[in-house]
Write a protein that binds this DNA or RNA. Structure first.
Lengths: 177, 177
DNA sequence: GGATACTCATTTGAGTACAAACGATTTCTG
DNA sequence: CAGAAATCGTTTGTACTCAAATGAGTATCC
């Protein structure tokens, strides 16, 4: 398991934001952007943290391990490079995660038929059983997490985040992959 | 440096979401929540990744190191436990980060006047110089990140995220701190 | 006032994560 | 077809990260 919450009782976030503003008022800063972005990061960390502690720990899965299983469940057998990219990790990190998952017999390696550099991975039957048990619970937690929002707000939130994501990833130099 | 983007050219996210939906349609799942939550996490990772690569790497600062400097800048000298909480890391992690920052003479330790268990930390002059140089740039990137949204949308995004954050953190067992 | 319980930061041990270097293959090119 | 370039997954080195154990110091309670 790993990673911790971006702290802060949410009930005091607004006060904290006001405090920050008060201290930085003489610099020329974009407080609206600051507030939106920092809340994105905080909420993202809180979600990951919550899932790890409240759900994934019960199955002895890290966030990344869960993500890899999920990717393989949705898209089936995939080459490692593609899995890494989908899971949002580097190839090097995936190698380590694969080691763990393979030791637990949740995934299996499938050598490429005629290019021996390449390796695909896929779920074993045990892997399928596990993700089919875990994911519905995961989704229940997701539902709970957005339960304070109306349906329209949930859609709006996803839409706005996609816009940010688009902007950020187009501005970030692609290193690997 | 560390951590990587939650992958995916944002331009194909919507298509990916449709693919997922197609594959899971027979399970009874809350796709709206799933979409909102996964976009929160993806956007959060993308933001962190972007800042690390496009800005913080130039100053040889990790995300967490930057966050600690920022906390000390905003709130002044603080006890370590409080700094850890604000920065969203455990006290144990902070100890390591402090070691790095102290080696670079960006922060200094301040022993508590009459309780020798406690330690406060604060910025050195070099630390203040650094954060005062970096943060305005950081904020510029934040502005860029939300440049696809209207002002009203930026406020709405922050508001919706605060609601999610509130829900999630009230549902997550507090371990440390 | 002396043992006991508590409260801090730190250390420990294992796992995650990245970039960069590496080695094994395959593909390209002359 | 042989050497160079490109493309894979893996390894390496460093940093971050957590939970749990530890150790130093303080407070409580009889």
């Amino acid at each position: 398991m790993s990673r911790r919450i971006a702290s802060s009782k949410a009930t005091v976030v607004s006060q904290a934001e006001r405090d920050i503003r008060a201290r930085l008022d003489d610099h020329e800063l974009d407080f609206t952007a600051m507030s939106a972005i920092s809340n994105i990061y905080r909420a993202g960390s809180a979600v990951r943290n919550h899932m790890e502690r409240s759900l994934l720990a019960d199955y002895d899965l890290s966030w990344v391990a869960f993500t890899v299983l999920w990717v393989l469940w949705i898209w089936g057998e995939q080459e490692t490079g593609h899995v890494a990219s989908e899971a949002g990790i580097t190839k090097g990190t995936l190698t380590g995660v694969m080691k763990t998952l393979q030791a637990r017999k949740l995934i299996k390696r499938i050598p490429h038929r005629d290019d021996r550099r390449r390796v695909s991975i896929g779920l074993t039957k045990a892997g399928v059983r596990l993700i089919e048990q875990v994911f519905p619970e995961f989704n229940t937690h997701e539902t709970l997490a957005v339960s304070g929002l109306t349906m329209a707000e949930q859609h709006e939130l996803a839409r706005l985040l996609r816009l940010v994501l688009k902007q950020v990833s187009s501005a970030t130099p692609e290193e690997d992959v």
